[in-house]
């Protein structure tokens, strides 16, 4: 149990995917204008991440490793993620139209989110077991949402600030992300015990 909590906290806070591994920066810079859409994208990503972690774990350990096909890892993982996003989209559309309305537009964005592929690769590298992998996916998603929402909040306020012209847009977003990364480093002490 302790191990699972550690995996969760590490993935969501101390080793936040966006702020320490730079994964999922594209939507981070693109979508983090409004808090509302940030929450939407965050939840959709968390959802896909958790399922992707579980599915790729099963495929890796029960198909790629036994049949000695590890060199097909990247190709397989990216196909799995792309089809998973499609399935999730169709499933939500059939079962819960309101949820689809809220999350639908974000789903296609997720396939090209490097955080998902990054998650599955890290999961293999770190030799997580099945349960740890799921918690890792969940934690990474929560961490992504957290970073995205904080950023959106700051950027909403930023509209009233005087940003030097050349830094408007991507420049200032990156600099703020740098400061957030510094702040998140402070959490490093949590798991040092």
């Amino acid at each position: 149990m302790e191990q699972l909590i550690l995996v969760f906290i590490a993935a969501s806070i101390t080793n936040n995917f966006v702020l320490t591994y730079f994964l999922g920066i594209c939507p981070f810079i693109g979508v983090s204008n409004k808090t509302e859409s940030a929450v939407g994208l965050g939840i959709a990503t968390t959802f896909v991440m958790t399922i992707a972690a579980a599915v790729t774990w099963l495929i890796y350990h029960y198909m790629l490793v036994p049949f000695n096909l590890v060199f097909l890892q990247y190709v397989t993982f990216i196909i799995v993620i792309a089809s998973l996003v499609q399935f999730v989209e169709m499933f939500i559309r059939k079962t819960s139209p309101p949820l689809y309305k809220a999350l639908g537009i974000f789903l296609p964005l997720i396939t090209t989110n490097c955080a998902i592929l990054g998650l599955t690769l890290f999961m293999v590298l770190r030799n997580y077991n099945f349960l740890e992998a799921i918690i890792f996916g969940l934690g990474a998603g929560v961490g992504f949402t957290l970073a995205l929402v904080i950023m959106a909040g700051i950027r909403e306020e930023l509209e009233f600030a005087e940003v030097p012209k050349p830094l408007k847009g991507a420049g200032i977003t990156l600099i703020i992300a740098g400061m957030l990364a510094l702040a998140f480093m402070g959490f490093g002490g949590i798991i040092s015990g």
Partner: peptide
Amino acid sequence: VMVLPAGAFITLGLLVGVFNILDK
């Protein structure tokens, strides 16, 4: 700090700014 993630973000942010100035 430059080799830490924070340094990466801040350096790139400033570089984007410098690029914009040069470009203009």
